[in-house]
């Protein structure tokens, strides 16, 4: 908030100066100063720009270039125009994965944010003893690499020897197969929630800490109950943080890859090669060596995420969250 405020004033002053004086012309001292400052500043962004060009623009450009060609086992490489794009648009395998991750996100994100908000509030209110220690413990799953987490959960949920399977049968659910066709979806949701709740909790906790004390004091003085303070005062004030988290988690859900890939080793009958869009792209490129087709799919996939990001940005700007 304060940063944006400062920026606004700076810009306001600059505009004011221009308005008051004559129209900007090159060679004028004021304009020179502006230009010089920009150029010197430019050196500071050079490292980033180089990295950005090398590791973002060039690969993206190369993907687009690759997607316009077709390399065949028989016949070599030929220009194929948008053929790979039409093939991808018609590939039901690709879009069914899309629908799956959208449903996945629609279930996983709200549950995870609710849990994260609950614990963030607990720590923020200082109800829990050893808050700092518990915050660290909650954060640990985020520090565990997704591959390790997936392997660990595969062991825990393994249908024959997994302790959770054993636990389920003790509770009367004999023959539960967490990795079976029917349960693989909720199982993956649980694994992802386990991995990411701590991270989301820490961000919400920080946002809650940033809520001005006076606002809370005023609410308490006005006789608001604890529940009211939390739900009617704090929650609306951390809404921007929640919106950002929803957006980040949505992109994360769309890109779901590591967990299903690892679990596929344990449950090949439950996780198909096109279970998520990224798995489809991976298997098209590596399994079938159809790099061109996969490149077209990747470009389409990237565009979907760009569109989602823009929609989110625009909606947040409309609400005046930032200028």
């Amino acid at each position: 908030m304060s940063v944006t405020g400062t920026l606004r004033t700076v810009r306001g002053r600059a505009l004011g100066a221009t308005d008051a004086g004559r129209p900007l012309e090159p060679g004028r001292s004021h304009a020179n100063w502006v230009h010089q400052r920009d150029r010197r500043g430019a050196w500071f962004v050079v490292p980033f720009v180089i990295a950005f060009i090398l590791f973002t623009l060039v690969p993206v450009g190369y993907s687009i270039y690759t997607s316009l060609y077709n390399t065949r086992l028989i016949g070599g490489t030929v220009f194929s125009g948008f053929q790979n794009y039409t093939a991808t648009f018609q590939a039901g395998d690709f879009w069914s994965g899309f629908i799956r991750v959208i449903i996945f996100g629609a279930i996983q994100i709200p549950i995870m944010l609710a849990i994260a908000f609950f614990f963030a509030t607990m720590f923020d209110l200082g109800i829990a003893k050893w808050g700092g220690a518990f915050r660290t413990i909650f954060f640990i799953p985020f520090a565990v690499p997704a591959v390790v987490a997936s392997v660990m959960w595969s062991f825990l949920l393994e249908p024959q020897f997994g302790p959770f399977t054993h636990f389920a049968s003790v509770l009367g659910f004999q023959g539960t197969n967490f990795l079976g066709t029917n349960l693989i979806f909720p199982t993956l949701i649980l694994i992802v929630i386990w991995e990411w709740t701590g991270y989301n909790m820490v961000i919400l906790f920080t946002a809650l800490k940033a809520v001005p004390r006076e606002v809370i004091e005023a609410a308490v003085l006005d006789g608001a109950s604890l529940a009211k303070v939390v739900l009617r005062v704090k929650l609306p004030l951390v809404r921007p943080a929640i919106v950002v988290l929803v957006f980040l988690n949505a992109i994360g859900a769309l890109q779901l890859f590591t967990e299903p890939l690892i679990l596929q080793a344990y449950a090949p009958q439950s996780i198909s090669n096109n279970w998520t869009p990224t798995l489809y792209l991976y298997n098209t490129a590596i399994g079938g060596q159809q790099y061109n087709l996969a490149a077209a799919g990747a470009v389409i996939f990237g565009l979907v995420i760009v569109v989602l990001s823009l929609v989110s940005l625009i909606s947040r700007r409309r609400r005046g969250e930032f200028a």
């Binding site: 086992l73 596929q264 090949p268 198909s272 090669n273 298997n283 590596i286 399994g287 079938g288 060596q289």
Partner: peptide, 10 residues
């Protein structure tokens, strides 16, 4: 193209 066949078959 056995790699593709194996990938698909799963």
């Amino acid at each position: 193209f056995m790699t593709e066949a194996l990938t698909l078959s799963g």
